[in-house]
Design a protein around this nucleic acid. Structure first.
Ligand SMILES: [Mn+2]
Ligand SMILES: [Mn+2]
Ligand SMILES: [Zn+2]
Ligand SMILES: [Zn+2]
Lengths: 165, 165
DNA sequence: ATTTCAATGAAACTGAGTTTCATTATCAGG
DNA sequence: CCTGATAATGAAACTCAGTTTCATTGAAAT
């Protein structure tokens, strides 16, 4: 009976406030650099969206982030949240994730290892999993097809442990 | 230097007419049984849609199938094509596949081994690949999470061999 | 022939995602 | 400080794949 580790959970987000501030500062700085490169600037709205995405949960829909941001700044617009999420995605700091209810979710990618998702069609919960072996065989298939892989999504739908009665 | 087979292409669809007719008959019969079980019947429109999906290419959008079906029966409606594709999916004969241009594609699942997809963001081509090893490690992850997997999608986006200059 | 209910096609609707546009903030040079 | 130029914003409008509605037709059952 071998001790299988292999698959690792990612209960994420810095719980320690100081740790969180450091993390935010680091990502903020990366975002700022990216924006400056395009002649844009890191406005307080953009920073607010980033902060919300980092703190208010892991797999948030546009409207989740919008709601969270609105609590801090009631004047913020949905369009701005949308545009900021796109910018974050564009520069590789965030990524889109599928979900049980058709709405796309967003997650922070920075400083996080690659992982895929198991999505509960009952409660919507999204569990993260990671399997180096899987990635390995995936890369093998990609190589054999002489395919230039840019990104992938691997999403398993079903019932989570809690919802499986 | 081991002879790697492992990843197999699926250039699909019975080329031989006789073979094709047999295949169609078999799937038709399954579909009919499914419909009867729900008090529905296999109309000529429904059969036409099935035939188109089987013959006119492998990863067709709703409107691809609609166009193909319309050639054979100009009176057929988009709603009927849509509903038939949903029925085929519902009974496990067909499945939805992602694509480069946001529109869902459909493929026949009956009598075909499970496979995943590499999708070219340049030309839209969808290549099929299959890796028992990947499925194996995927199942391992699922077991470890005590997840009840119902279906999954594993789609790799990038540039196909031809489009990679 | 009459009843019943499935099936259809045209057209209308839905809603997540996206864009437009008038207005407001930001910033660099003077 | 002003002053222009341009980036940024929020509200509202728009898109469009997917889906539903509804009036009509078809096909079986009685
Ligand atoms: Mn995740
Ligand atoms: Mn396929
Ligand atoms: Zn669940
Ligand atoms: Zn290509």
């Amino acid at each position: 009976m071998t001790k299988t580790a292999e698959v690792i959970l990612f209960p994420r987000h810095a719980k320690n406030p100081a740790q969180f501030r450091t993390w935010l500062a680091s990502i903020s700085s990366t975002f700022k650099k990216y924006l400056e490169g395009k002649g844009l600037n890191l406005t307080h709205q953009r920073e607010e969206v980033l902060k919300c995405l980092l703190s208010a949960g892991n797999h948030m829909s546009l409207d989740d982030v919008y709601a969270a941001a609105k609590k801090k700044d009631p004047t913020i617009g949905r369009a701005t949240v949308f545009r900021t999420l796109k910018l974050l995605e564009e520069c590789g700091l965030a990524a889109e994730v599928g979900s049980a209810d058709g709405r796309t979710r967003f997650e922070i990618k920075a400083d996080r290892p690659h992982h895929d998702h198991m999505i509960c069609i009952e409660c919507g919960r999204i569990a993260e999993f990671e399997s180096p072996m899987m990635e390995r065989f995936q890369n093998k298939a990609i190589r054999q097809h002489k395919f230039i892989a840019l990104w992938h999504r691997h999403e398993i739908f079903g019932r989570c442990e809690l919802c499986a009665k």
